[in-house]
Every structure is written in structure tokens, then in C-alpha cells.
């Protein structure tokens, strides 16, 4: 790791102000991605601003019928929360499928979505459930938040404070995990809220994406067979030693079908 200046922020405004005064600052949430990245010397921020002390970013509450998850809430807390599991079991299940117990004890929802790893699980939840991302300065709709591989709509220094999830009528997340890391080779979140259906895919492309053709088919008939014959193009999908673009395209249909079946 290269050297950096470490400081712990005392409030959201203190964190944002510190970031503004630095040439090249990084916020540190749970550190489950940032610390490995620093160890590999893939990033060399001059300043690390630790958000761990910010109680205002922690916790889960229900507000106007939506489940609001503070940015510094860990995956283990989301997985273990009855306030999440009772209204949106798909979200609790998704959090429980991330990494391993030690990663879930440290990793946070805010850190995950700000990092926007193409194979992370939470982007599928944010887009698949039509969530709203709250930052220190504004709110950003799910469909506008993830812009590209490791890219989001966040401005430099802008800090995610919470994510608010509307409660769907039904939803489920299915993923084909990398057997070693548990990152999604392909993960699909399907939800239905009244007449709106969302199908969001993570792991397959550079960034999470929706599949409008599946959404339209499910709006007419919310059943596994409605998506069984719909496939996405392999063009531009991710390719690595674990899966080819064609295999990922195939998995999108399989995972979508299973998610619809699981959502019941």
C-alpha cells in the first residue's frame, strides 16, 4: 500500500468538507473492496476519510412505506434485519449471498453501490427494486445511478447517505455465483409492483442493466415460461476465465426464469 493520510470523519458535512480540501481523497466505508485495491496499488489516494464513526449513516428504518437502509449498514445487518426481511425478503436474501460472513460483517451497501463493481449484487437490488439513492446533496433514481463499469452518477466528493427501497408486491434474486468469490457471474433481480415489472441483471455486462423485453412479457404474464424464450444478446457482455459472453447471455435467461419462479 502507498502511504496516505487517514482521518475519521465526525459528521457527513465534515467528511464532505475534508474531501473537498484534499487533492485526491477516498471515502472508506467497510473497506472490503477499497483495502484490497490499495494493497494491490491500483489506487493511491492522498487521503482516506473513514466514515465508520457516522452513526447517522447506519441503520434501517421504514419511511413512507419504503425500507430505508443507511449507507454504512453492513450486509450482515441487512440480511439479519426483520425490518428488511419481512417486507422485502429478496433484499435480505441478496445481502446474505454476498461474499462470506466476515465480508458481510464489514462491507456496506453504500460502499458497494458507490464502487459499482460490475459483478456486485447490490446494483441488481437498487435497479431491480427501483430504489432511490440519497446523497449528501440530492436524490438519484436507480436508473440514473449506475452509468458504467465502476462508474456512477456521483460527483467528486458526493457521499451516499442511504438507499430507499419501495416495497414490491413480490420479488426474488437469483444468482449464479463465482464458486470462489461468490461475486455474481450473473445475478437477476425480478420485482413486480402493481403493473410495473423490473428485471435487473448484474455480473453479465459492464454495469447493471434492465431487460425491457422480459419486463413487458412478465407484465402480461408473471410466470417463468414468460421469460424462458427471451434471451439477451451476447454482444458486449463480460468475458473472463469463468464464463464467455454467450454463457453469460444464456445464464441471464436461466436466472430470470428461476427468479420469477422464486418470486411466486
Amino acid at each position: 500500500m502507498y502511504e496516505f493520510n487517514y482521518r475519521r470523519a465526525s459528521s457527513v458535512s465534515d467528511a464532505v468538507a475534508s474531501s473537498g480540501q484534499s487533492d485526491d481523497a477516498s471515502y472508506l466505508a467497510g473497506g472490503m473492496t477499497l483495502i484490497p485495491v490499495l494493497k494491490f496499488r491500483l489506487a493511491s489516494p492522498s487521503d482516506i476519510i473513514d466514515l465508520a464513526g457516522l452513526g447517522e449513516l447506519k441503520g434501517i428504518r421504514t419511511e413512507n412505506g419504503a425500507v430505508v437502509v443507511g449507507a454504512m449498514t453492513t450486509h450482515a445487518e441487512v440480511a439479519g434485519s426483520s425490518e428488511v426481511r419481512q417486507p422485502i425478503p429478496a433484499l435480505a436474501d441478496l445481502a446474505e449471498s454476498i461474499g462470506d460472513p466476515q465480508v458481510r460483517n464489514r462491507g456496506t451497501i453504500g460502499g458497494s453501490i458507490a464502487n459499482a463493481d460490475p459483478a456486485a449484487d447490490y446494483p441488481a437490488a437498487v435497479v431491480g427494486l427501483g430504489a432511490t439513492v440519497h446523497t449528501n446533496s440530492r436524490t438519484i433514481g436507480a436508473d440514473d445511478f449506475f452509468t458504467d463499469m465502476f462508474e456512477t452518477a456521483l460527483e467528486p466528493g458526493e457521499l451516499v447517505t442511504a438507499v430507499s427501497f419501495p416495497v414490491p408486491d413480490r420479488a426474488a434474486y437469483m444468482k449464479f455465483p463465482n464458486p470462489a468469490s461468490r461475486y455474481a457471474i450473473v445475478g437477476v433481480m425480478v420485482s413486480q409492483s402493481g403493473e410495473e415489472v423490473r428485471v435487473a441483471v448484474t455480473g453479465a455486462g459492464g454495469s447493471v442493466f434492465r431487460v425491457p423485453e422480459m419486463e413487458q412479457a412478465l407484465a402480461v404474464n408473471f410466470a417463468p415460461e414468460a421469460v424462458a424464450g427471451i434471451s439477451v444478446s451476447a454482444d458486449g457482455l463480460n468475458e473472463d476465465i469463468h464464463a464467455s459472453p454467450e454463457y453469460r447471455a444464456h445464464l441471464v435467461t436461466v436466472m430470470a426464469r428461476r427468479a420469477v419462479a422464486a418470486a411466486g
Binding site: R8, G31, I35, D50, P101, Q102, V103, N105, R106
Partner: peptide, 14 residues
């Protein structure tokens, strides 16, 4: 809670 101490900064444990 169990954590992986190779991926926690000492400063985070203050």
C-alpha cells in the same frame, strides 16, 4: 464480530 484482519486498517480498530 469475526473480521479478516488483513483487510482492516489498524486505524479502523481505534
Amino acid at each position: 464480530q469475526s473480521v479478516k484482519s488483513c483487510t482492516v486498517l489498524a486505524a479502523q480498530a481505534d
